[in-house]
Nucleic acid binder design. Structure first.
Lengths: 409, 409
DNA sequence: CTAATTATGTAAAATAAAATACATAAGTTC
DNA sequence: GAACTTATGTATTTTATTTTACATAATTAG
C-alpha cells in the first residue's frame, strides 16, 4: 500500500476518521492509546496515523512520556490545520472571531447589535463580517471547519432555532443554520450562551468533572449543566432556566417576566440595582452593583449577601434534583466573591442531603471574557470530531486540498 | 465457511455481538435494519445472524412488515434463551423472581424483610431463595444471564453500594455486587427502586419519550428521571431527591428527616395521614389516605388536592431545571387521580415558561404492581446487551453450552 | 558506555469482510 | 395466474485488516 510521504493516499486518509476522533476528543494521545481504544492492529493504526500526520491534521507534540524505555511520543490535533468562525450575540454587541483548533483567536471583530434590526439584517451583517474573517484566516489556516453561534436566548439545539419568548424578538423560527449553511457551505451550530459558558468552564477548568452546574449571575440569572460530560439540554433546550423559579412571600417582587417572586426579581443584578436605587444609590446594572460592592458600600454588600442566600435556595433545589459534584458561579456578580458565595454555600449545605453535599464543591468562575465565544468553539469542535461526524469532516478536508498527487505513479 | 446448521460455528457466533446488541436494544429489528445500523455487508450480517438464530439467541417473529414485495421478516431476541434473577427489597418484604428476556416472570417468591437483620443475613437468605429460583428456571431457560436488585434507598450505581443516610441501616459500604457475584458468578446490578420504577414506566409505556420525569407519591415522595433514554443519576446517584426540598412558611411542619418544611412533610402520604389523624380520622399510611379519598371523604379530598398543589410547586421547579417532555405520577397516592393531578398541573402551567410546558404532558401512571422489579429486569437487560458488554455476554453463553460439535469434521 | 527496556515501523502471510453478480423467495397489484 | 416488487441468500472475486516475525529507535539504569 501507499507509504507515508509518497504523495497523498486518499483511501487511507479517508478511513482515518476513527483515529482522528480518538485524538481530537482526548480519548487517546499516544500510539499505544490509539491501539487500545481503536481495537485496530498496529499496522493499521500506523498507516492511518501517518496519513493524518502527512496531511497535517495531527502532529507529534514536543513532550514525551518517560516510560523506562523509549519514551512515548504524544499526539495532538494540529491547531493550525484549519479555522472556524464563532460569534457571540450579546445585548449590545456581536463579537465575532476566527479561531484555530486550540481554540485560540486568529482574528476578531465586533459589530454593534440592535435587536430591532431583526434577524435578516443581523445575519446578513454577520455574514459580511465572517467573510472578512475568512479572508484573514485562510492564508495561514487553509481549511474552514465550520461556524458556531452563541445566542442570549433559549435555543432548540437540534433544530438550530431560537425558541420561546425571547430577548431576540422575531428570531423565532428563523432557520439560522440553514441561512449560514447556504452561504458558507460548512456545518453550523447554534447554542444558548449560558450553556456555552458552562461548556467552556468544563473544558477549560474542570475537564474531569463530568457533572457540574454553572450558575451565571449577572443582570439576569441563568444556569447550564454538564451531565456525563455533555451539555444537558432537556427536551426543548430549555433546561437550566432557574432565573424564574418562584418562591412566594408577602413581599414577592414583580419580575420582568410578569410573574411575582422569581429568583431574578429578588437576586439578579437588575433587582439589586433596583433595591439600591430605592435607597438613593445610582445603580441600574450588575456592573453598577459590583462597583458599589467594590467600594465597600455596606448596603450594597448586604444586598449582595442576601441575594446569595436567595440564589442558594434555588441552587439547593437544583442540587437535590440533579446532584452535581461541582457548582461554578460566574457572571458579573460573581466578582462579589465570598459576599455572594457564602450565602449560596450556607443554603446548600443547610438544605441538601449530606450525601449530595459530601463531595460537592462550590467555586467562583475565573472571570473570563468571551467564555461564551470559546464555548461556541468547543461545541463546534466536539461535534465535528465526534465519531459519528468525523468522516464527514475528513471528507470535506480532502476535497479542500489541491489534488497535487492524485495522478497515477 | 461454516453454513448455518452444520454444527456450531463458534468463531462466527463470537463475533456476532454487534448484531445481537442491535436487535436486543431495539436499534434494528429486521435484516435490512441490521445492515443499515451495523454498516456490515449483507454477507456478514447473514452469517452472524444465522449463528445467532441457530444458537437460539435470536428468533424470527411471526409478524412481518408488508413492503410491496416480499415482506420483511422481523427479528427479536428469543425470550426463552435464558433467565435472570431480580429482587425488590421493600419495606416489609423482599420480592424475588426469575424472569425470561421478555421480561416476564418464570417463577417467584417472597421473603419477609426485617431491616434489623442486617445486610449479611438478608443477602444470605436472598441467595438461598435465588438458588431455588435457579432450579425452577434452569430446565426451561438454560442460560443464567445475571442478577438485578432494587433497593429502597439511594444507591451508588457504579459501585453497587447503598449510600448516604438510608432506611437500610448498616448497608452502607456493603459490597452487594461482590457478594452475589462471588456466589453466582454472573453480572450483578443494584439500583434505587424509584429509578427502576421510572425505567419500567419508560420502557413499557413511553419508549419514545426520552426525557421524562417520574414522581412517586406514596408514603414518601421521590422521583426518577430519564434523560436521553437513560436513567439520570447525577454524580453520586442521588439525583431526583425531591422529597426533601424545602420551602419555608410560618407553619412549616417538621419532617421525618429532621428539617422543617420539606415537601414530604407537607404532601407525602404520611403527612396527609398525620393531618387526617389530627382531624379525628384513623389514618397512618398512604393506603389509609387513599381509602378515605375513595370513600369520598371531603376532608381527605381537600388535603389530597392541597398536596397536589404543594407537589406542583416542586415539580414546577424540576420542570424549569430539567425541561422534561413528560411527567408521570405514580405511587399509592396516584390512585387519587385528578384530585392529586389537578394541583400539580395547576402549578406547573402557572409557573413554568410556556416553552417548557408547550409540549409537556402530565399523566398518571397505570398502577402496576412490581414495576420496580420489572425495572430491575430492564436495567439488567439494557446493560448486558449494551454494545460494550454484549461480547462478554456472548462469551459466557458459549461457555455455558455443551460443546456438542466442537469436534473436528 | 553497555545492557535492559519500552516504543515504533514494516514485510509477508493469513484472515476477515466487502463488492459483485446472480439466484431465489414471498408477497402485492392487476 | 402473471407481472412486479421487495427481501434474502450465496459463490466468487477483490479489498482491507490482522498476525507474525523481525528490525530499529530512543530512552533509563548501572
Amino acid at each position: 500500500m501507499a507509504r507515508a510521504g509518497d504523495g497523498r493516499d486518499w483511501p487511507t486518509l479517508e478511513s482515518a476518521g476513527g483515529i482522528l476522533s480518538l485524538i481530537a476528543t482526548g480519548a487517546a494521545s499516544s500510539r499505544a492509546g490509539l491501539l487500545r481504544q481503536s481495537g485496530l492492529s498496529r499496522v493499521t493504526v500506523t498507516q492511518r496515523l501517518n496519513a493524518l500526520l502527512t496531511a497535517g491534521l495531527v502532529r507529534e507534540t514536543e513532550e514525551t512520556l518517560p516510560s523506562g524505555g523509549r519514551p512515548t511520543r504524544m499526539l495532538a490535533v494540529n491547531a493550525a490545520a484549519g479555522f472556524m468562525l464563532v460569534a457571540n450575540i450579546g445585548e449590545t454587541h456581536i463579537h465575532l472571531a476566527a479561531m484555530d483548533l486550540t481554540p485560540a483567536v486568529i482574528a476578531q471583530t465586533t459589530l454593534p447589535f440592535v435587536v430591532a434590526s431583526g434577524p435578516e439584517a443581523t445575519l446578513a451583517r454577520m455574514a459580511e463580517a465572517f467573510q472578512s474573517l475568512i479572508e484573514a484566516a485562510l492564508p495561514t489556516h487553509r481549511f474552514f471547519l465550520g461556524i458556531s453561534l452563541s445566542l442570549p436566548t433559549p435555543v432548540d439545539f437540534k433544530r438550530g432555532r431560537v425558541v420561546g419568548p425571547s430577548v431576540l424578538r422575531d428570531w423565532d423560527d428563523v432557520d439560522i443554520i440553514g441561512r449560514l449553511r447556504e452561504r458558507f457551505a460548512v456545518p453550523v451550530y447554534v447554542e444558548n450562551d449560558v450553556n456555552l459558558m458552562t461548556l467552556c468552564e468544563y473544558r477549560r477548568n474542570f475537564p474531569d468533572t463530568e457533572d457540574m452546574l454553572f450558575v451565571k449571575i449577572g443582570t439576569g440569572i441563568g444556569s447550564g449543566m454538564i451531565s456525563g460530560g455533555r451539555i444537558f439540554r432537556g427536551a426543548q433546550g430549555a433546561a437550566g432556566d432557574i432565573g424564574h423559579i418562584q418562591f412566594l412571600s408577602d413581599d414577592a417582587p414583580l419580575c420582568r417576566c410578569g410573574k411575582f417572586g422569581c429568583v431574578e426579581a429578588r437576586a439578579a443584578g437588575w433587582a439589586i440595582a433596583r433595591d439600591l436605587a430605592r435607597r438613593g444609590f445610582s445603580a441600574g446594572t450588575a456592573r453598577d452593583v459590583i462597583g458599589l460592592v467594590e467600594q465597600r458600600e455596606p448596603e450594597a454588600i448586604m444586598l449582595l449577601r442576601a441575594a446569595g442566600r436567595t440564589i442558594g435556595e434555588v441552587v439547593s433545589d437544583v442540587v437535590s434534583i440533579i446532584n452535581p459534584s461541582l457548582i461554578v458561579v460566574g457572571g458579573t456578580l460573581a466578582r462579589g466573591g465570598d459576599f455572594l458565595l457564602s450565602g449560596i454555600r450556607e443554603l446548600v449545605y443547610q438544605r441538601c442531603l449530606p450525601l449530595a453535599t459530601r463531595d460537592l464543591s462550590i467555586v467562583l468562575s475565573a472571570a473570563e471574557e468571551d467564555s461564551a465565544l470559546f464555548g461556541a468553539a468547543y461545541l463546534l469542535l466536539e461535534n465535528l470530531f465526534a465519531p459519528a461526524e468525523v468522516d464527514r469532516l475528513l471528507h470535506r478536508f480532502l476535497l479542500s486540498r489541491p489534488v497535487l498527487a492524485a495522478l497515477p505513479g
